[in-house]
Amino acid sequence: MSIKNKKRNPFEIFGLSPQIVKELDEEVLFKLIKAIYKVFQLIYHPDKGGDPKKALEINLAFENLNLEKNPENFRNYRKKYIERLSRKTLQKELEELRAQNRKLNFYNELLKEKLWQYLENGFEFLRKSFEEGSGLKLRIFDIVTYMNFSGFRNTKKQMFFKDLILTKDFILKRRAYEKYYIKFLNYKYIGCIKREYLEPWVLLEREFKDETQSFKNFVSKEAFIKECLVFLEAEIKSNSYIFFYNSEDFQRVFLEGVVIDFEKLKEDEFFDILKNKTINLEKRVETLNNFNREISEF
């Protein structure tokens, strides 16, 4: 009788699992089958009042698994039965992965719902931290600029540092080598993430040009929600990545860099910066355009 014509594997008829069939060696497995066969004979033999059809099925199964008379049949059926274990294992792993995916999707949706709550926490932190006419000055290490330009020979260290002044209404920003701050009204603080929790270069958007790769200073909103939001803290801390977003186009989250240190500005120092060391972004663009025009005319 061919294996293909059998609807049930003989090992299945004897109530053995693919796992036990795989683990036992041939001799021990056949001894177990003979023991089960004897028990079945006592239960299903017609002379004992059993079911003739069931008794015939058991006899045929034992005939196919008789290692002493049909070793080739025994091994073929065993191989086929063990293959079921692989399929069941894969099916089980697939179901587990699907369950994990459903759980991750649930948490992802939950994080999206919590996003604005985190942003509000950041707003609340700024509101409580600063009274009218005060701000927090931060020294930032610009990790994105460092990754893009640290290999160039003539790169100056000042390029990698910048100063930020946070207030509850606006943000001032300048490079370490620049004299003036630029005022940003729509640039909003989100929060900080400790450095040990994040490897930002994995998430940063990238640009490929002339076989070279450069990093952008932003992460997509979706990637930020998925990978960063759970670690976000409203409080500003040293040795943490600091993030912002543009309130007019909240599809990107900007990484300004790593907070080196920070201090609260005194009122007179703050107003001096606003009055004498700050320009609007529009004015800076106009200055750069005039400079470029003069260069072109020259």
Rank of each mutant, 00 (worst) to 15 (best):
P10F: 01
S129N: 15
L111W: 03
S220T: 13
E23T: 13
L274M: 14
L229E: 00
I225M: 01
F271H: 12
D142T: 01
T278P: 06
N70T: 03
R206T: 13
Q41Y: 14
L111N: 01
Y241R: 00
E132H: 09
T89K: 15
F224M: 01
N186Y: 15
Q100G: 04
L232F: 01
F218S: 02
N76T: 02
I242E: 00
L126G: 05
E256R: 03
L29T: 01
I279K: 08
D272W: 09
T167C: 04
D142Q: 02
L65M: 04
K266I: 03
K103G: 07
L97R: 12
K137I: 10
N105V: 12
N121P: 00
R153P: 06
K53Q: 11
E286S: 07
K183W: 04
I13G: 00
K6P: 00
T155E: 06
F243I: 02
E263M: 11
L42Y: 08
Y44A: 14
K54P: 02
E83S: 15
F231N: 04
K209M: 14
R284N: 15
E263Y: 12
Q213S: 13
F123K: 07
K283F: 07
F271Q: 09
Y180N: 13
K4V: 10
I20L: 10
K237W: 04
K173C: 05
N73I: 00
R293Y: 10
M147P: 03
R284Y: 13
K157S: 10
N105F: 09
E113D: 11
F254K: 03
I295M: 08
L104N: 13
R8P: 00
E23Q: 14
E263S: 15
I260L: 12
F125E: 13
F30R: 03
I193H: 00
V21F: 06
D169V: 12
I273W: 05
F208I: 13
R8I: 05
S240H: 03
A176E: 06
K194Y: 02
L90Q: 11
A55R: 12
E12D: 14
N73E: 11
W201M: 07
L281T: 09
G257H: 01
K80G: 04
E286W: 03
V219K: 00
I140N: 08
L185V: 09
K156Y: 11
G133T: 08
L265Y: 04
